[in-house]
């Protein structure tokens, strides 16, 4: 069943500082949408607004999960996750003193995910064999790349329908970035997910995105209907590729 996400005319910020202005975007069922923009343009704030961590001052955010529509503004973060929307935040936010397995089991806290634990755990260990090798290691003692894998796997343990990922490439070596992006594609297909991914690394994000939005100074500056449209856009040449 279809799961999608719609953000309509959202304003949001911190105290008196307004970061997002009249932002609208949609992620249709089964799509991978990239949210592109350099640091400080509001990508993370938009992600946090969707997840109920930042409360928008205006606008609507609606999620359709398996056909049922839910308004997200005003709900707590835990309620939003419980609906079936998982979030891999910037900085990964693992539980550093818990083992890999303990982190994964915490990912399955959501009541709907509990019956699928064994299947999800198998899937995660299959997709990330490294995590299986390190199952008993403390999360905080792993490398950045391994931690990013664990953060993705932990989000999937909640059996989400929609997955939000904030800056998966931050702090990773170039080779690991492309491997992480490939894994996101693999997970999306394996779990039949709808994905919204915020990323600074334009070339990597566009490899797996169906389409994307460019956010500049808290406004959607360009909506590219395909990866080619993004590749050929003037704004992107100007802001990203320096051409």
């Amino acid at each position: 069943m279809a799961s999608s996400l719609t953000v309509s005319n959202v304003d949001a910020g911190y105290g008196a500082v307004r970061v997002l202005e009249d932002v609208s975007l949609t992620v249709e069922a089964g799509e991978t949408v990239a949210l592109l923009g350099t640091n400080g343009n509001g990508k993370s704030t938009l992600m946090k607004s969707i997840m109920g961590i930042v409360r928008p001052s205006a606008g609507r955010i609606t999620a359709t999960i398996d056909g049922a529509s839910h308004e997200l503004v005003g709900r707590s973060t835990e309620e939003i996750v419980d609906l079936g929307i998982a979030f891999v935040p910037e900085g990964r936010r693992l539980f550093p003193k818990q083992t890999v397995t303990e982190n994964l089991l915490l990912g399955a806290y959501r009541p709907k995910a509990r019956s699928a634990i064994a299947r999800n755990l198998d899937f995660c260990f299959e997709t990330f064999p490294r995590l299986k090798e390190r199952a008993r290691q403390l999360a905080g003692s792993m490398s950045g790349g391994e931690q990013q894998m664990l953060a993705l796997a932990r989000a999937l343990m909640s059996s989400p329908r929609v997955l939000l990922i904030d800056e998966p490439s931050v702090g990773l070596a170039p080779l690991l970035v492309s491997r992480t992006i490939d894994k996101i594609k693999e997970l999306k297909e394996g779990f039949d997910l709808t994905v919204l991914m915020a990323e600074q690394n334009f070339t990597q994000a566009v490899r797996i995105a169906d389409r994307g939005y460019v956010i500049v100074h808290g406004r959607i500056a360009f909506a590219g209907e395909s990866a080619e449209a993004l590749n050929n856009n003037e704004l992107i040449r100007e802001f990203y590729l320096g051409a």
């Binding site: 707590s76 973060t77 835990e78 996750v81 419980d82 818990q98 915490l106």
Partner: peptide, 19 residues
Amino acid sequence: RAIEAVAQDPLALRLMAAD
């Protein structure tokens, strides 16, 4: 398991759907 993790990162716990 949530009790063991709660002090390490309360926001991360919210992202696991736990209050």
